[in-house]
Design a protein around this nucleic acid. Structure first.
Length: 113
DNA sequence: GGCGTGACTATGG
DNA sequence: ACCATAGCCACGC
């Protein structure tokens, strides 16, 4: 299996895990990487989502933010529905591109899955 | 193979 | 809370 295949396989695991995030909860790139056994690949997680993650069923990528609770990927959500809008529709409070109640809505797959 | 870049993270001042 | 540094890993030039 070449590097390309490994990355694609990892991407599928990332999508699968993100689909498990409960509505109204969020997690971080690092938490996902750690849950999949690759603690040092947090940047790769973000990269995977950035490359137009067209998977089916669709992946709720808006529920993934960085470790500080900042919507670092909002630029990728071009359209009527912004990342912030999607989160607010689930009851998450966003202020200045940052999740206000981050500690309460954070979902750690290692501890809650 | 080098070098810059980025939806990252942890740590220290 | 803000900024700088240093690891990190895959990608594109």
């Amino acid at each position: 299996m070449d590097r390309r295949g490994e990355t694609e396989a990892f991407a599928e695991l990332v999508y699968a895990l993100i689909r498990e995030i409960p509505k109204g909860r969020v997690t971080s790139y690092g938490a996902i990487a750690r849950a999949l056994g690759r603690p040092s690949s947090s940047r790769l997680v973000g990269r995977i989502l950035g490359r137009g993650s067209h998977a089916s069923p669709p992946v709720p990528a808006h529920r993934v933010v960085n470790s500080a609770g900042v919507l670092s990927g909002r630029e990728a959500f071009s359209g009527a529905q912004t990342m912030q809008t999607l989160l607010e529709e689930e009851g998450i409070v966003v202020r200045n591109n940052k999740i206000a109640n981050f500690n309460r809505v954070f979902w750690d797959p290692l501890h809650e899955l």
